[in-house]
């Protein structure tokens, strides 16, 4: 389980997140949702120690992550940032091999277990037929799966993903989310992701954290968070919440901006 205790995060003098207390349950998929600039990516970075909070502590299974070695943490949590870049000509297998970096030392070469994990990660993300292709020759969806495979090869209990489906078309979005769901169901991985699409969050996540201006507006199951009033507060839109006839999960159908939002658009807030 990941918990935060009165987390303050900011760049320079500007505070982005104030007094944040959240809990991320183990073995579940948690989605961080919020408008652009709400601080959800910043929170993800702080949880995964990519960013140092100015105050407060992040706990992983009861112990502070700030006092642990970054290499030890890399064996417990893997992170996929937004738009990662690979050097030209790197193949999928080579990329995934770097996921083993925290388990290796110095000149050391790949051991049998490393190879097994790499093979498994490539298999489970459906990248086997592309294993020897250079990353820059793949489609957006394939590339994202390759990066996920790399994070999986890290063999961690927790996986952080910053907008893993942005810039992908609908089929590829679904492909990526299905892989994450499979990992959660089959391997009981804890998955924490920032998602833009509320309906994806509702469909795939067990736990949603809705964030506005660096503050948590509401946390809970999709049924608890997906309420017209909360959506209005978090995103500044008016919407109807209906029931997905297939999954039974709530679906958000936006129909208008709120009045004050219509007058002053939220871009860049």
């Amino acid at each position: 389980m990941i918990e935060t205790d009165q987390l303050h995060i900011g760049y320079d003098q500007q505070t982005i997140v104030n007094d944040l207390n959240i809990e991320i349950p183990s073995g579940k998929i948690t989605a961080l949702v919020g408008a652009n600039g709400s601080g959800k990516s910043t929170i993800l970075k702080a949880l995964s120690r990519l960013m140092k909070p100015s105050k407060g502590i992040v706990y992983l299974n009861g112990s502070s992550i700030h006092s642990q070695k970054t290499k030890e943490l890399a064996k417990q949590m893997a992170i996929l940032p937004q738009n990662p870049e690979a050097p030209q000509g790197l193949t999928v297998t080579e990329l995934v091999t770097y996921g083993r970096a925290p388990h290796q030392r110095g000149f050391g070469s790949l051991k049998a277990h490393d190879k097994e994990m790499i093979g498994w990660a490539i298999e489970i993300t459906g990248m086997r037929e592309f294993a020897n292709r250079p990353i820059d020759h793949l489609s957006g969806g394939q590339r994202q799966r390759a990066w996920i495979a790399m994070a999986l090869a890290q063999e961690t209990e927790t996986l952080f993903l910053d907008e893993p489906t942005t810039f992908l078309d609908m089929a590829h979005q679904m492909e990526v989310l299905n892989i994450l769901e499979k990992l959660n169901v089959q391997e009981h991985r804890t998955i924490v992701m920032v998602v833009h699409d509320l309906n994806h969050a509702s469909r795939y996540a067990h736990h949603i954290v809705a964030i506005k201006h660096g503050n948590v507006v509401k946390t809970g199951t999709p049924h608890e968070v997906m309420e017209a009033g909360i959506i209005e507060k978090v995103f500044g839109i008016k919407s109807d919440i209906i029931k997905d006839p297939r999954s039974g999960m709530p679906l958000c159908l936006p129909y208008n901006l709120c009045e004050e939002q219509a007058a002053s658009p939220i871009f860049g807030s």
Binding site: K45, S48, R49, L50, T70, K71, E72, L73, A74, K75, M77, A78, I79, L80, P81, P84, E85, A86, P87, Y98, G99, A101, P102, Q104, G106, F107, A151, Q154
Partner: peptide
């Protein structure tokens, strides 16, 4: 001796940190 660190650094700072560097 640091070839792996050099490799990971080419993925960018965040990725390198995430990989334990």
């Amino acid at each position: 001796y640091r070839w792996r660190a050099l490799d990971t650094l080419t993925f960018g700072e965040q990725m390198a940190k995430g990989l334990g560097l």
